[in-house]
Amino acid sequence: MIAALHDWFIAPFADFAFMRRALLGCLAISVGATPVGVFLMLRRMSLTGDAMAHAILPGAAVGFLISGLSVGAMTIGGLVAGMAVALLSGFVTRVTTLKEDASMAAFYLISLAAGVLIVSMRGSSVDLMHVLFGTVLALNNQALVLLCAIATITWVALAVLFRPLVLECADPQFLRSVSRLSAVTHFTFLALVVLNLVAGFQALGTLMSVGLMILPAAAARFWARGIGGMIALAMAIAAGSSAVGLLLSFHFALASGPAIILVAGAVYAVSVVLGREGGILARYLPGVHLQS
């Protein structure tokens, strides 16, 4: 029995370096991206995160065009494109009548089309699949260092900006009345979103990099009351989903990125039904009446 459990849970990681690298990469994403995902969700910007994930594609594609599948070039390209789309959509929102969701959608659609076009101009469909869906099982040292560095930067930035970020979410008018940090907080947060999407893109590709950011956060919302608990639980769900997803992909020869995201999706589905904080059962089963 113990041998069977060992073969199932431990051996894939103990015996294969690519599995250990994949797990380390996913854990770094879990630590860095999920707190950002919690704030994205609480600011009702989950779909903005998804749009931004698409927005990094043309930059990564230009990096690919110049240097092939180079971590550095694709990362820098992705960062530049992501920040450009975030700032441009904000600019269009401010100077025209278009709302932020519409301008963001317009820019991400243009970005996605441009990115796919650029990759297909030079690369094969395999390269395109790599950019769109990532290669978590092929993370090299450079990519792992990048993922860990981004997780560290994210935690330092969140530690510094935690209080204004909470106020910017809960009571933005009050923050503006007591401090000039509102704009700084907003743009730093957007930069963190782009940074973590670029990190996720290395492992999960542009189409699913937002998965480990949002799904664990959405699931944690159904269990935790405070923001600290929510962040801790979201990180645990992301880390657990990564390990289980990698094991499923190993044993059943499944695509690893989608396996990880689907496990996180399963945790989310269970949380929607069973979650004690506003889940379906908690909401609709009759509660205990107050006794006089």
Binding site: D171, Q173, F174, S177, M230
Partner: peptide
């Protein structure tokens, strides 16, 4: 200057305790 915003401008669903706010 202290400012009391309208309640509609505050996200009441945000998970923050009375003490922290």
């Amino acid at each position: 200057v202290a400012y009391l915003p309208q309640q509609a401008e505050i996200d009441r669903s945000f998970p923050i305790s009375v003490r922290d706010l």
